[in-house]
Design a protein around this nucleic acid. Structure first.
Length: 608
RNA sequence: GCGCCCGUAGCUCAGUUGGAUAGAGCACGAGCCUUCUAAGCUUGGGGCCGCAGGUUCGAAUCCUGCCGGGCGCGCCA
């Protein structure tokens, strides 16, 4: 991440960056992380070089980075400043690095500053710097890692948005979890977040739902309906809907023409489906702030408004729809339809916003819907299944066009979530849509548990395909990342319990007693605030899961030192001072694990 | 045919948005339990980062073209 890029300046206002020594107890209380503090120090050092005339004033610093080197032997922090700025300073990287090192080495918490390779500057921090971070974790507790990066701007995250025609199934699961974790991550990173669900209650699908409910309604009235007709939803979940309709309306609509009951049954059935969907989502701990109805959007004339404005801009015109590019339908005929000029924004062809019967296409309404969302947010994120990848360009085009209406176009991203293949003992689980025999979210959550489902969905980057094997995700071994992480936390808790039973409490009075191995653990945990920020910027919650895996591994590794060396155990009975410091360390590592798991919506268990 | 995603150890995947000698788990080999949970840890071998060019101080990462896999390509949603 650029030290002085725009994200960084949002997060850490200039006043903080120029503070002479941010690494003080007071700075810690302000939630200044070590990383942010040293970004400021480098800035200050470069200013000093400018003042001395070593560096020309005003060189762009956006490419300057400060990061923890991959190889810990290189030090705690590294910057490429000398390499990046050497050309502009008309000198070579090493000469500039030497000048910069002289400035940085003088800082109180820098133990060592050295030049490496082509001109990297490696900083090794004093132990006190890391021990201070341990104190910061304790002071901030559940807020450790919380960032001001988002600067209070509002991000609307739309996720799930499954058609309200049945229960949630596993096809919806990954997007639901990724969206929900992303929402939590953005909130933690300082954004206001709106969690939104778009209810497609206006299209052909919900008419089919209403007809299906009507069959179940007649069934509830005692009619023999036989097999559910082809093309309708056969699922048994509509039986109670039919019963409720029968109880409410008696036989009034049993033989009535469709026109008399379709709208009514549709509304009743959609409402019932939404109750069911919310219950299903609640099983995963997912709660949206807002359910937006497509039918309502249309009733308020929003698509018409959008069309009128787009026509005025010549972004919608009446034209001939191009033939589909793939396999050609036999009944294809060219028709004139109102088309949005998405080709101007890189799409392959212009896209219809209305059907030939005058009703809105999904896209036509969706365009107006996104404009509606943009009015109350600074940025939009949609989480979609990969099967909708083909429509990304048109909606991005539409949002760019529509939001330009109010000034600059709003940032808008579509995150595609790839398919999950369900396996049972290595064999694909067969799903037949025709019979309505899909694996529901509820079944899976009830079988393996909420935490397992959520964590597993986040153990892969969203755009990579994933297998979900029922046997593997509940396995109690280190092969299973959910378990591995929970086990680390449970170990910490059991250690604290045992310590308490023996009369020891965590204490920060003698943290200097902690050795090199303990500091390694602290250094890793201290990466958490920066990780939160980079994961939020990238909109990638899975990074939190991977970080926690690394932290758990480091913890288990440290723990096992005690196998061979009794003096490295957390509880050293004859040394209360050291035990207090170690238990303090354990407490704070546990805190970071909890904070990370909280972002993922996973409960940290205290014993297993 | 076109668009999007993916291609990294035998397998499953990370890779800090362009940084230093590309990492972890599984599997395979060798070790560690009188213990705060061995449900764990240590250690060894294993790589043309799909291929070929390009951009620059520097590429697994960015650009172009191929190859292979997945998803999609009606006025459906």
């Amino acid at each position: 991440m650029p030290v002085f890029g725009c994200a960084e300046s949002l997060a850490h206002p200039a006043t903080r960056l120029v503070r002479p020594n941010p690494l003080t107890a007071r700075a810690m209380a302000d939630n200044t992380t070590l990383h942010a503090a040293f970004a400021g120090q480098i800035h200050a050092a470069l200013d000093a070089l400018e003042a001395k005339g070593v560096l020309p004033a005003g060189l762009p610093r956006h490419a300057v980075t400060l990061e923890a080197p991959r190889d810990p032997s290189h030090g705690d922090l590294a910057t490429n400043a000398a390499m990046v700025l050497a050309k502009g300073a008309a000198t070579n990287p090493r000469a500039l690095a030497e000048a910069l090192v002289a400035e940085l080495a003088a800082l109180p918490l820098v133990a060592e500053a050295s030049i490496a390779g082509p001109g990297f500057i490696n900083l090794r921090l004093a132990d006190a710097a890391w021990l201070g971070e341990l104190g910061a974790i304790a002071a901030l507790g559940a807020d450790y890692g919380r960032s001001t990066l988002g600067a209070g701007t509002t991000v609307n995250v739309e996720y799930v948005s499954a058609n309200p025609t049945g229960p949630m199934h596993m096809g919806h699961c990954r997007g639901a979890v990724v969206g929900d974790a992303l929402a939590a991550l953005l909130e933690f990173a300082g954004h206001k977040v709106v969690r939104e669900y778009y209810v497609n209650d206006a299209g052909a699908q919900v008419a089919v739902l209403a007809r299906s409910a009507h069959v179940r309604y007649r069934e509830a009235l005692g009619q023999a309906v036989g097999e559910i007709p082809e093309g309708l939803y056969p699922g048994e979940y509509l039986i109670p809907v039919g019963q409720a309709l029968a109880a409410e309306f008696g036989d009034r609509y049993a033989a009535a023409p469709e026109g008399e009951w379709l709208g009514l049954f549709q509304a009743r059935a959609v409402a019932a489906m939404l109750v069911m969907i919310r219950d299903d989502l609640a099983l995963l701990g997912i709660h949206h702030d807002l359910f937006s109805s497509e039918a309502e959007l249309q009733a308020r004339g929003k698509p018409e408004e959008a069309e009128a404005w787009l026509r005025a801009q010549d972004l919608v015109y009446d034209g001939l729809l191009e033939a589909p590019k793939g396999k050609m339908p036999e009944d294809w005929e060219p028709v004139a339809l109102p088309l949005f000029r998405s080709t101007r924004f890189g799409d392959d062809q212009d896209r219809p916003i209305k059907k030939s019967d005058g009703s809105w296409t999904y896209f036509g309404a969706d365009l107006a819907y996104h404009y509606q969302k943009a009015q109350s947010a600074d940025a939009l994120v949609d989480i979609w299944g990969a099967d909708h990848a083909g429509t990304v360009k048109r909606i991005k085009a539409a949002v760019a066009a529509m939001t330009a209406r109010d000034g600059a176009a709003k940032p808008f991203e579509v995150k595609l979530v790839q398919m999950v293949q369900l396996l049972r003992d290595g064999e694909p689980v067969k799903m037949s849509k025709r019979s309505g025999n899909f694996v529901t979210l509820r079944e899976v959550v009830e079988e393996v548990g909420k935490d397992v489902v959520r964590f597993t969905m986040l153990t892969r980057k969203p755009e990579a395909q994933m297998d979900f094997d029922f046997a593997h995700v509940v396995e109690a071994s280190k092969d299973n990342p959910v378990f591995y992480l929970q086990y680390a936390h449970a170990r910490i808790c059991s250690t604290l319990r045992k310590g308490a039973a023996e009369g020891f409490a965590p204490a920060d009075g003698a943290l200097h007693r902690l050795g090199a191995e303990e500091l390694e653990l602290v250094k890793l945990a201290a990466q958490f605030p920066r990780l939160v920020e980079s994961a939020a910027v990238a909109r990638e919650p899975h990074r939190v899961a991977f970080f926690l895996g690394d932290l758990a591994a480091a913890f288990h590794s440290y723990w096992n030192l005690g196998n061979d060396r009794v003096e490295k155990r957390f509880i050293v009975a004859q040394d209360a001072e050291l035990t207090g410091a170690r238990l303090f360390l354990a407490t704070q590592i546990g805190q970071v694990i909890r904070n990370g798991l909280a972002l993922l919506g996973v409960v940290a268990v205290e014993e297993m």
